[in-house]
Write a protein that binds this DNA or RNA. Structure first.
Lengths: 103, 103
DNA sequence: CCTTTGTTTCAAGAATATTTGAAACGTACA
DNA sequence: TGTACGTTTCAAATATTCTTGAAACAAAGG
């Protein structure tokens, strides 16, 4: 992950609704959640939820797959891991103090 | 760190200039950098740099100390570590996949 | 086909964030 | 006390993001 991608990812996480979406999807696990379920979970209108989901998807933090009439969203741990790695290794240059927070 | 604080911290990092400031301060180490040096480093006007520094300071990511006529800024690794910890433990619920990115 | 369900897209407006340049502030030192 | 330096603060203009509600789109089943 480069600096530009990191900024985009931070930006995606920099909103209460979107962070709540990510947390709900983490909790949901591999089955994911439909767009409607997500909207309900974060108490947002369908279009508002859709807007935030598109920001998260654009940043690669979530991915969707259609299941019949539903769109199922899942969190992309790979991307979250890449962000953590960027923070520790690139941004903080492997600082021991920061690294210690993972243990 | 709670969800609200995490959003504020992500927001602080969600700008190219500000991420560049953090990186410059990490590189500078314990001596820190003056506001003017930071402005030069990220190619921003004094007032623009000052604005971004205030956002970072508000989020607790940097701290300042006056040295004669200069204001010296230093990165707050503690806060960055707290963000990493929030991402791994709270947001991702300790996901092994994410945790593996720290090793 | 027509209707229902689930979701996105779009345009408009509202709210926030950012940039800019000028002015003010604090410190040092002649 | 006056001047220079380093920085912040402020107001205005600009840019970006977010919300809303209506309309469009996609899939399923009568």
């Amino acid at each position: 992950m480069n600096e530009t991608a990191a900024v985009e990812t931070f930006q995606a996480l920099a909103h209460g609704d979107r962070l709540a979406v990510v947390r709900a999807l983490v909790q949901a696990g591999p089955d994911g959640l439909s767009a409607g379920e997500i909207a309900t979970a974060v108490e947002a209108s369908p279009s508002r939820a859709s807007f935030h989901l598109s920001v998260l998807a654009e940043a690669g933090l979530v991915a969707s797959e259609r299941q019949a009439r539903r769109l199922i969203y899942r969190v992309q741990f790979e991307r979250l891991g890449a962000l953590v790695s960027y923070l520790i290794e690139d941004c903080c240059r492997g600082s021991e103090q920061v690294r210690a927070c993972c243990r």
